[in-house]
Design a binder for these strands. Structure first.
Lengths: 348, 348
DNA sequence: TTGAAAGCGCTACCAT
DNA sequence: ATGGTAGCGCTTTCAA
């Protein structure tokens, strides 16, 4: 980290002197010459009570003058529930596709007036982490990957969470599940390569173990697609860097493969380039197939064939959460998402 | 969104019947046969008071049995302060570089025992948004881009925020600033292209106006680098899609440029491919320079030259925030980060 | 060593 | 139409 420090001129150490204490509704009441109850009624526009316009104005002015801002914690303590949706940080490095999905989801939840809290699950894991999450008394919890067990779900529900949704991992008792069907991605890929006449198929599995949640099911899916066809499936470890790709490419001819499903477009691009540098002709000698349908995949030559994933939109999931929150009695549901379709371009 | 619903068997609508109410410290006290005060002492391991081991054990057992989890809101209400670090969602589409930075930052803050709250700033903007943020009484606020003015900073400080840090935009009175010096990125790019003997230089400015915060300073930097050299600078609007790139490439020969700084690697890759499809030889006819030093830039042929950005690590910033929180009296500081260095490869 | 009680800021009853 | 007040769950004096 390189930086240059510049001292602010002494003349203005602070633009506004930091007030000793934060104004409360009592301060507003005092200034407006009314009771705290009245302040609350006015500021919350409570339909149940009628307040004269004169008083309303006085209260609003007082609030304005003091720069009053209600205290969310106090409010939700009193109310007995929060609008917090908790999302533990994913335990795997999020790709561009997943990042965008999360961003969309957050925005949509915000629009529904939820407060999204990203909780970094530093160190803790599993049901121990669930206890930390429960302290926030979230109204809903969205857990990516395999970050929670039945115990954890129970803890959260006991702490008042009206919906627990697991994202991507296998179903957990008591929780709603949004299953990402990565197995079918692999199946799709395997079937496509087989259709193209390929019989000796490599499958890239990232060395990053945190990606196992995705890569293992994809590999399994390829295996299933090819079972009984006489085609072979070879697992290929690959790190996300050029030397690793170069090493793999160097022994490519020995591997004798005629196709490879490269986990996703990024790994596919990396490997394809390494193979080309090694003189391997694509797709003639080896077909290369990615996944995620990134824009950049179209920029290589040959254009990268890919498996397009039909992720739910963030808005969809947000509404799903909202519905679950509104009807917490409903039995946990499992939604299997991820329509996978091959986008054949030039590399297969 | 395509999904298949599967009903959970009726026999187990819920693994554990949802208890009517969340256990409080009073429940624990009752079960352990002690007072609430004692429970608090035991569970917080308060050094100030000595509690007999027998009592300690009874309290712990009771807490365990009830599945007691303290209520964060109540605690921080009583304490008068929170450990919340608020981060409004960025108002611009975050690239891979920025996303990773944010993730790192969140993890580091979590490790320092802060709770990171991502607040989706749906609709609201500027000082109006600041009021919404202040409701959470965050101990620190990290605002990416130009999302806040002096008024907003004052509101947050009044609400008890001990540190307000702006990320990337110009300095705001009263707030610490982590200035991302995008102007120098442009300067660096301009200087490099000039050194390479280029004199008619195009600069890509993404059509996405949300990226103006970054793209405008970069453009200005190029202009500054080339001022007085007789070289020309041409602004080029470009959308992040292939048709847009193709349109720009189609009129390339008319533009008569011999170099282009393409905002970042992604736009550079997009444009470079379109130019090549148009028959423009790179770098002979036109040099192409990106920024961000993404791995994928190395996969094109020619390899993409780029401006490498020396971002601070998330850990660094987290510690900076922590220090500011611990010493809230200190005058706001401005840190200018982003060491920019050209990584010349084959495209320039 | 433990308990009683006050109070953080807010809202919703029940009076007036 | 407005005010008094109880109490959400927690910590922390002060007293015993």
């Amino acid at each position: 980290m390189r930086y240059v420090m510049v001292q602010i001129p002494k003349s203005a150490p602070f633009p506004t002197p930091v007030p000793r204490s934060v104004p409360t509704s009592a301060d507003v009441a005092r200034l407006a010459g009314v009771s705290r109850a009245t302040v609350s009624y006015v500021l919350n526009d409570s339909g149940a009570v009628r307040i004269s316009d004169a008083t309303r104005r006085r209260v609003h002015e007082a609030a304005e003058e003091l720069g009053y801002v209600p205290h969310a914690a106090a409010r939700s303590l009193r109310a007995g529930h929060s609008r917090i949706v908790l999302m533990p940080a994913p335990s795997f490095p999020a790709g561009p596709l997943y990042s965008r999905f999360i961003e969309e989801l957050q925005e949509a939840l915000g629009r529904l007036d939820y407060t999204v809290v990203q909780h970094a699950t530093a160190g803790r894991h599993g049901d121990e982490a669930a206890r930390a999450w429960a302290e926030l008394r979230p109204v809903a919890v969205l857990v990516p990957g395999s970050g929670i067990g039945p115990e954890g779900v129970a803890v959260l529900r006991r702490a008042g969470a009206r919906a627990v949704v697991t994202l991507g991992s296998g179903p957990v008792e008591g929780a709603h599940a949004l299953l990402m069907d990565h197995e079918s991605v692999g199946h799709c890929a395997g079937a496509h390569l087989h259709t193209r006449g390929r019989r000796r198929i490599g499958v890239v599995v990232p060395e990053d173990r945190d990606l196992d949640v995705f890569s293992r099911p994809r590999l399994a899916g390829v295996r299933r697609a090819l079972r009984g066809t006489g085609a072979t499936v070879t697992e290929l470890a690959l790190g996300y860097d050029e030397p690793s790709a170069a090493r793999l490419a160097a022994r490519w001819r020995d591997l004798g493969l005629d196709a490879v499903f490269a986990y996703n477009d990024e790994y596919a691009m990396l490997l394809m380039r390494a193979l080309q540098d090694e003189g391997v002709r694509i797709p003639e000698e080896t077909a290369v197939l990615g996944a995620d349908d990134l824009l950049l995949g179209r920029l290589l030559r040959p254009r990268l064939s890919t498996v397009h994933l039909d992720l739910p939109s963030g808005r969809d999931l947000a509404h799903l959460v909202d519905r679950a929150v509104r009807d917490p009695g409903a039995p946990p549901q499992r939604h299997t998402v991820l329509g996978a379709t091959v986008v054949p371009r030039e590399s297969t």
